[in-house]
Design a protein around this nucleic acid. Sequence first.
DNA 1: TACCGGGTTGGAGTTACTCCAAGTCAACAG
DNA 2: CTGTTGACTTGGAGTAACTCCAACCCGGTA
Lengths: 116, 116
Amino acid sequence: MRISDVAAACGLSADTIRYYEKSGLIPTVGRGADGHRRFSKENVDWLTLLYWLRETGMSMVQMRRFCSLAQEGDKTKPERRRILVDHAAELDRRRAQLDRCEAVLQVKIRSYDKRQ
Amino acid sequence: MRISDVAAACGLSADTIRYYEKSGLIPTVGRGADGHRRFSKENVDWLTLLYWLRETGMSMVQMRRFCSLAQEGDKTKPERRRILVDHAAELDRRRAQLDRCEAVLQVKIRSYDKRQ
DNA sequence: TACCGGGTTGGAGTTACTCCAAGTCAACAG
DNA sequence: CTGTTGACTTGGAGTAACTCCAACCCGGTA
């Protein structure tokens, strides 16, 4: 797959994908005879995961850690699993934050309704 | 109130509060005889609201708009109300995103559990 | 009087992109 | 065969929203 196809498939922009490769967040990206990047299905799955991790607030430092673990093979699976479990817990914290903000907004909105 | 007290009260750092003032996100901040900022209860409430808006993804451009509306007086209340209602809807979208990420993570975590 | 703990400013550094200019290359039209 | 189009390449500049820092001021205590 070409970079534009991958961008359409995984949700990241072509620029971001190039930036992620340069930053060491994608294990193995091949090149065609023309020098263009060629992405495997594995690459696309990987980038799709990164998209979701990033979209929900994981830092690039964390993602880089996750990537280098993935390159070290199966023996790092427990640690990689733990990173994802921790991130799932982080999602819960964010959900709670949205709820608190929602409450603040509702109070504020009602205060506009009263004095009008 | 001094800036450090406000920081403790509203959740933003002193640096961020100064940055927000410089950027025109706080309507009226007074100064004491010593040249230090003095914050009113209104200021603190305002900054607490900004904290929640920012924490849940509102951009500074939007917050600046909200601030300049607040300075125009009561006639802008309907528009300010609408901004908050729109942001509440945005919170729903973010909640849905967290849910989708959660699902992706669970699938991935289970895939680690299988082959081990 | 010397220091300490607050505050002040302006400016540099950081993260995670995003955009752009200049160049290459393959494919197709005339 | 030549010219244009479109998609890719790189390096580098620009952006948002902070965050940190140096250098300074000022009021109060030992």
